[in-house]
Design a protein around this nucleic acid. Structure first.
Lengths: 240, 240
DNA sequence: CTTCATACGTGCGCCGCCGCACATTGTGCT
DNA sequence: AGCACAATGTGCGGCGGCGCACGTATGAAG
């Protein structure tokens, strides 16, 4: 289905921040799609066909090892875009993009993207600034994986997801979170139990509710703040 | 000192791959600099002033926590460039760039870089492709930090350094490696001891020699291969 | 209302890594 | 040559996380 309402665009901050002229040029190339939980947007090493601008969904960038173990390297919501390899010139990436929270996105074909990108306008600047923010997120994930406990990383993960979510409840089992964080399911059970005991979250059978966001922010490691500040700085127009 | 010999350029693969026209335009903006071990090219949050194209040096991208703990997020040699935030539009980055192996580089001021970048020529394409390769390296660092042992990570780190080095010996104490990997110095002693016992490396007081590269490649985790393949694929002109 | 798969809880032994303390061995400097 | 210091070796207790096994609860399907 083609994009019918301008509101669709506004829901993605990168698109919403475009000046009218570029907005008009890009509009016809966007297609509204609904994505379901667990769906794959691209696979490791496979040619990317589209760019996805999330509006209400959340996408997780995952790397899966040969033995099946996996770990998340970043998360993308309506502040960003999925498929940066397309405009960075790689065409493929050695990771996967999986729908972590069902919802909608705007899909753009590769060909018009390239045409628009080489104009070196605001669209290109936005995409590149976003990419730098994503690099910070990935970097901080590396640091956090090295130096912090599961409980700290879970807090960081919950806050990053909450920032990209319109609600306080996310549908997500501990098993799924364990796959994202690259840890045992039991490890998540333990860490989530502690956060619940502190009254910061509440969870039950695949439903996690953020009860005390301030409290979470107070206990999370600095990694969250570093990433958040960098997103705010680089995407100030695009992330209110 | 200004660049006097074209050979200087050839030593950096990104510059060497430029077509003659762009090469001529960029040449006057490059300055040859010699960098010493431990020197900082930029600090966290500080305005970047220059882009550095390593020729014989190796640069480490590090993140340092508030409590002083640090971890490497990537390494750059003559296949790449330091200071991507300059052309990605961020101007600053929340990490540091430290000289890991003394040597030379070509330095380019921010202003002419921007002018050249917006021409959307081969220079821009090269820089962006390189950035994607770097993203893969950072991502794989995150995964490796999560899932692999110090010994595996040390192997990966040695191979990545060896790829960017002209020799088999690198000047590097175990203490420094520990800071890069974000682990204890004793952990590096133990892991290095095992690699030495297997006859893969030899080390003594700040001098590490790669004895059996094939052997190292056979024991390293898949993370190294993933990064290497992606660099080869994206920078095939630039990394022989 | 029962059934049943799915999600979560818990205990146990094990291992890798940490923090600390201290011994030992090179290396450069005078 | 001798000294001081930097680099490495080693041991020990502790902890966080792993793999495994099995128990418990809850929501949906019939």
């Amino acid at each position: 289905m083609p994009v019918q309402h301008n509101n669709d665009l506004i829901e993605n901050h990168l698109l919403a921040a475009l000046p009218g002229e570029e907005y008009e040029r890009i509009l016809p190339h966007l297609e509204h799609v609904t994505l379901s939980l667990g769906q794959s947007l691209y696979e490791s090493g496979k040619q990317l066909k589209h760019l996805y601008f999330p509006t209400t969904c959340i996408i997780s960038l995952l790397y899966t090892m040969e033995n099946g173990a996996s770990a998340e390297i970043g998360v993308v919501g309506n502040e960003g875009v999925v498929g940066i390899a397309l405009f960075m010139g790689g065409d493929t990436a050695p990771n996967r993009a999986i729908v972590q929270s069902a919802g909608d996105a705007l899909k753009m074909k590769a060909a018009p993207l390239r045409g628009e990108f080489v104009r070196a306008g605001e669209f290109q600047l936005s995409l590149l600034r976003y990419t730098q923010a994503l690099i910070t997120q990935i970097s901080q994930t590396a640091v956090c994986n090295r130096l912090h406990t599961i409980e700290q990383q879970l807090s960081r993960w919950l806050l990053l997801s909450h920032d990209r979510l319109q609600a306080d409840e996310l549908k997500m089992t501990q098993e799924m979170i364990a796959n994202m964080l690259g840890v045992r399911r039991e490890g998540v059970t333990y860490a989530a139990g502690r956060l619940q005991a502190e009254g910061l979250i509440k969870y039950a059978r695949g439903h996690i509710t953020i009860l005390d966001r301030k409290g979470l922010e107070a206990t999370v490691c600095e990694c969250y703040r570093v990433v958040k500040d960098e997103y705010d700085r680089l995407l100030s127009q695009a992330m209110p």
